[in-house]
Simulated scan of single mutants.
Amino acid sequence: MNVRTLCLSILYEGEATGYDIRRLSVEGEFAYFVEASFGSIYPALAKLEVDGLVTSRTVPQAGKPARKVYSITDAGRDAFAEELLGPLGDDVFRSPFLLLARFARILPAELVEQRAKEHLERLSASTRKLTDLAGEGSCSPADQWVINYGRAVLGVAEDYLRTHMHELTKLAKADPRKDAAE
């Protein structure tokens, strides 16, 4: 999925500004699909507008610059549905924690254990956030399915880290100063 499709997916649900699209793709309900920067959102919106898939209107604000609010057109709805009919790409998973785990052998064991505990807390916080979303009652059945999928994936990661954290810590150096002196 690309930024263009992400923009259409958010606009499919209702009007939004470029800022709204960025917020929803980073911390909102669309954050699990594609991450998008302002540098990619605004060119995508401009191209979508040229292609007749979205329209925009300028909304003045008191004491602030005017906002540009985008809406999806019928052609945009059709294009979005068409995009979903195509083959899906691979899921993309990136994790700074896994990079640390990969190189645990060059780090102090205390630091590796601390980072693992911090990561475990982030996983738990993400699970709680999804649980709260599921409990709000405003989710469609499809939203509920996606939330439950996310909770299951996070649950497996949490369980694995809780069960195997000691193995990761064991991979780390017991005393990095001693190893450096040798």
Rank of each mutant, 00 (worst) to 15 (best):
M1C: 13
N2S: 13
V3G: 00
T5S: 12
L6M: 04
L11D: 01
E15F: 03
E15W: 00
T17V: 08
T17G: 10
G18A: 12
G18H: 04
Y19R: 14
Y19G: 11
I21M: 08
I21V: 14
R22W: 12
R22T: 03
R23Q: 15
S25R: 00
V26G: 08
F30C: 00
A31L: 06
A31R: 15
A31C: 14
A31N: 06
F33V: 09
V34E: 07
A36F: 08
S37G: 15
S37V: 06
F38R: 09
F38M: 11
A44D: 02
L45V: 05
L45G: 02
A46T: 08
A46Q: 14
E49A: 13
V50M: 13
D51N: 05
T55W: 05
S56F: 11
R57N: 07
R57K: 12
V59W: 02
P60D: 02
Q61C: 05
A62G: 04
A62D: 08
K64N: 07
P65V: 12
A66S: 14
S71C: 03
T73N: 00
G76N: 05
R77L: 12
R77P: 12
D78E: 15
L84F: 04
L85D: 09
G86T: 12
P87C: 03
P87F: 06
P87S: 13
L88C: 06
L88D: 10
G89C: 08
D90I: 05
D91M: 10
F93T: 06
S95G: 07
P96G: 11
L98N: 07
A101D: 09
A104E: 05
R105F: 13
I106Y: 12
I106L: 07
L107G: 07
L107P: 00
P108C: 02
A109F: 02
A109P: 01
E110Q: 14
L111F: 13
V112A: 02
V112T: 02
Q114T: 08
R115G: 00
H119Y: 13
L120K: 02
E121K: 10
E121S: 12
S124F: 01
S124M: 09
A125W: 00
T131Q: 13
T131H: 14
D132K: 10
L133T: 04
E136N: 07
E136Q: 15
S138Y: 09
C139K: 08
C139L: 10
P141Q: 03
D143T: 03
Q144Y: 05
V146K: 05
I147K: 01
Y149L: 15
V153W: 03
L154R: 04
G155C: 03
A157P: 06
E158A: 00
Y160F: 08
H164N: 15
E167H: 11
T169R: 10
K170L: 09
L171K: 14
A174F: 11
A174G: 11
R177Q: 06
E182S: 11
